[in-house]
Every structure is written in C-alpha cells, then in structure tokens.
Simulated scan of single mutants.
Amino acid sequence: MLTETEGRNAVKLARKTIEAFLSEERFPDPEELDFELSQVFGEKRGVFVTLTENGLLRGCIGHPFPDSTLEEAIMDSAISAAVNDPRFPSVEEDELKDIIVEVTILTPPEKINASPKELPKLIEIGRHGLIVKQGYCQGLLLPQVAPENNMDSIDFLSNTCLKAGLAPDAWLKGAEVSCFEGQIFKEKEPYGEVFEEKFSDQ
C-alpha cells in the first residue's frame, strides 16, 4: 500500500509527465519535480492513469501487470491516456486546466478458481477489479467502475466481457476471470488537492 504522500506524488508525476509531453514531447526532468520519489516507485507495479474532463472520461490506459517500475508505468500510462486512447482524440495542452488526473495502483491479478455460477458471490463491488480473457480477447475494468456506474457483480462481469469484445455472458461459458485490487488517488479538482478514494468502505 502507498502512503498518502506517495499517492499524492504518483498523481503529481502523472500530471507533470503529461504537461512535459504535450508541451515538448519529452519526459519531465527530475529537477522539475518538486517532490522526491520514494523506494516504492522503483518497485514493479501495475497501474492505470485515468483522465476525466467535466465529469466525463477523457482517457484511461495502464499496465494491468507489474511489468515495469511504478515510476515508468505511471509516466508511460499518463502519456498513453492523454494521446493514445483510441476512444478519444489526443488531449490538447489547454485542456489540462479542466482535466482531473487519477492514478490507480494495482495488485497482481489472480485467477478466480470457481464455477461460473459461483463467480458473482466472490466479487466484492468497490474492492475488486476484473480481467476477463478468452482466446486473444481480453478486457479489464478497474474497481471504481462498478460503484461509479451502480453495477452489481453480474453487471460487472458482463461489462468486463463486453470490454474484451466478448458476449456479455462469456463469463458463464468458460472465459477466464481474474480479479485484482486497486488503490485510487485522484485530484479533487484540476491541479487540486489529491485524496485517496475508497469505495469498499461505502
């Protein structure tokens, strides 16, 4: 688990990276950061960066698996969320004043070994994110997606299947389902105070 300070710095790093890339197509220099990255940023972690503008999704991309250091994964995901999300046009530099930056640190995904009918009982809304995989198709939804959209566990499974490009009932028909947890840090407003958002306590 990251501390509040580490979470705040994770969001700051994401925003600074987007600013540097949109203005000069580069990563931020260490001397530009007004904070120090602790040891945890050198550990391999999965992470997603989510951008929202006026309450609407503006970009969300990440590393589902711990394949890079947290620092590298945040910077790569931040740039990808801003300019490489195929669902949206690239973020423009003057949009940043209206965009809220959110960083979700992931635990390693674990396959749920249960019969399809048992799956909904094992998914805790607000705590678990899901990955559904079948053949070459794979889809992921972060833990915050279900409570933000008033989904129950069956809705959540079905929507993760749809995200993978599969039929909504693929989870009942042999698709592999994995779960993970996420620690969510986000700005209260663009460039504003960063807080840890917790849905599982609600």
Rank of each mutant, 00 (worst) to 15 (best):
V145D: 08
L51A: 02
P143G: 11
I61D: 10
Q134K: 15
K111H: 13
L106A: 09
H63K: 03
C137E: 15
N113K: 10
G126W: 06
S80W: 10
T50Q: 02
E72M: 06
V40H: 11
G129P: 00
N113W: 14
E118A: 15
R58E: 03
V83N: 06
C60T: 04
S77F: 08
R127T: 06
L106P: 00
C60I: 11
E92L: 04
S115E: 15
P64S: 09
C60K: 07
T107M: 07
P109I: 02
E102K: 00
N54S: 13
E124D: 15
V103F: 04
I125S: 13
G139H: 06
M75P: 00
Q144M: 01
I79E: 10
S68V: 04
Q138I: 09
T69E: 04
I79M: 04
L70C: 04
T104C: 05
G55M: 02
D98C: 07
F65Y: 13
T52Y: 07
A146G: 09
L57C: 07
D94I: 01
G135V: 04
V83H: 05
E95H: 05
D85R: 05
P109S: 12
Y136L: 15
L51V: 03
L70W: 09
I74H: 10
E92F: 03
P120I: 02
L122N: 12
